[in-house]
């Protein structure tokens, strides 16, 4: 199975006079790419453009070799929308099987596959009940099942973790991660940043006010934010003594003393790590533990949009 890429090339989208996306260029390959941004940032528009539900006002969207508005391109696609809408009178299995039939599976194959994928997502016991009686988490999983069912080459998930309890969230992230590892191109938007951080092995795309602010791994993005000092927390039993040594280091810009720790700000993170490693390895045993405070997605997101 050859890799399929999802490509946005200088894409802009306007709704009347409102600009939803401006000049977005993004290339998503195999693995899971996370899409983060505030409400109204343009995430759903980006995903709908990828699903062929919208046409770009300018620029090109390609799913493999063709725009997703073409049927051939949509044959590669699995899409889990953000809306909580269903054919309520159907059972979970009937709904997923019906969707898989529309994907081109035979009636029997669709039924079997629907049962399989619902089982995988933890809905095995409830799949014969009407969707109208499902809880929010169950409905979310049915939505996901209809997208995952045909094992798409490109999987678009718009807020798939919303409404899921911790166990279901774990189940879903495992399944999505697995799909990405097997080589599918997965684009996931979410507000649950720390889970997206664990899930998005192919990088994060950060959208703000319709523009793509950054795209890459979290560490990579953090490293590029050179104007933002990195913050580290050093646990110690002798904070004052440690602080006295730290102020002598060129790589350290600022030091704050706590009761059992010292917070350090640095603009040269590689140099600081080298200096601190040396200091920790010295015979004084001044550092018990070193914790980076702002190299997670939440911090990067905060820095970029603030």
């Amino acid at each position: 199975m050859s890799d399929v890429q999802l490509v946005f090339d200088a894409v802009s989208k306007w709704y009347g006079q409102v600009s939803a996306l401006t000049d977005v260029t993004l290339r998503c390959g195999p693995g899971v790419t996370g899409l983060v941004g505030r409400n109204g940032a343009g995430k759903s528009t980006l995903i709908k453009l990828a699903a062929g539900l919208l046409r770009p006002s300018t620029g090109t969207v390609l799913l493999g070799d063709a725009p997703p508005t073409r049927r051939a391109a949509r044959a590669l696609l699995g899409y889990c929308p953000d809306v909580d809408r269903f054919y309520e009178e159907m059972s979970g299995r009937a709904f997923v099987a019906w969707m898989l039939r529309l994907d081109g599976l035979s009636a029997r194959a669709a039924r079997e596959r629907a049962g399989e994928v619902l089982d995988q997502l933890g809905l095995g016991a409830a799949m014969h009940r009407r969707i109208a009686g499902y809880s929010k988490g169950m409905r979310q999983r049915v939505k996901l099942a209809q997208a995952l069912g045909k094992r798409p080459r490109v999987l678009l998930l718009d807020e798939p973790l919303t409404g899921l309890d911790p166990v279901a969230r774990h189940q879903v992230t495992d399944v999505v991660r697995q799909v990405g590892r097997e080589g599918a191109c997965v684009l996931v938007s979410s507000h649950v940043l720390h889970e997206l951080e664990n899930l998005a092995d192919a990088g994060i795309a950060l959208v703000h006010q319709g523009r793509l602010l950054a795209h890459g791994g979290v560490a990579e993005l953090r490293a590029q934010l050179s104007e933002r000092p990195h913050r580290l927390r050093l646990r110690t039993t002798r904070p004052r003594a440690l602080a006295a040594r730290l102020v002598e280091l060129d790589s350290v810009a600022r030091v704050a003393i706590g009761a059992r720790d010292v917070e350090v700000e640095t603009r040269a993170v590689a140099g600081a790590f080298a200096d601190l490693t040396r200091l920790g390895a010295s015979g004084e045993r001044l550092i018990d533990e070193l914790l980076p405070l702002d190299d997670d997605l939440e911090a990067v997101f905060g820095y970029l949009v603030s």
Binding site: G52, P81, L102
Partner: peptide
Amino acid sequence: DRTSVYLFSRPLS
């Protein structure tokens, strides 16, 4: 009711 997204995102004419 927006269930059309399921149909429109499939390879159907």
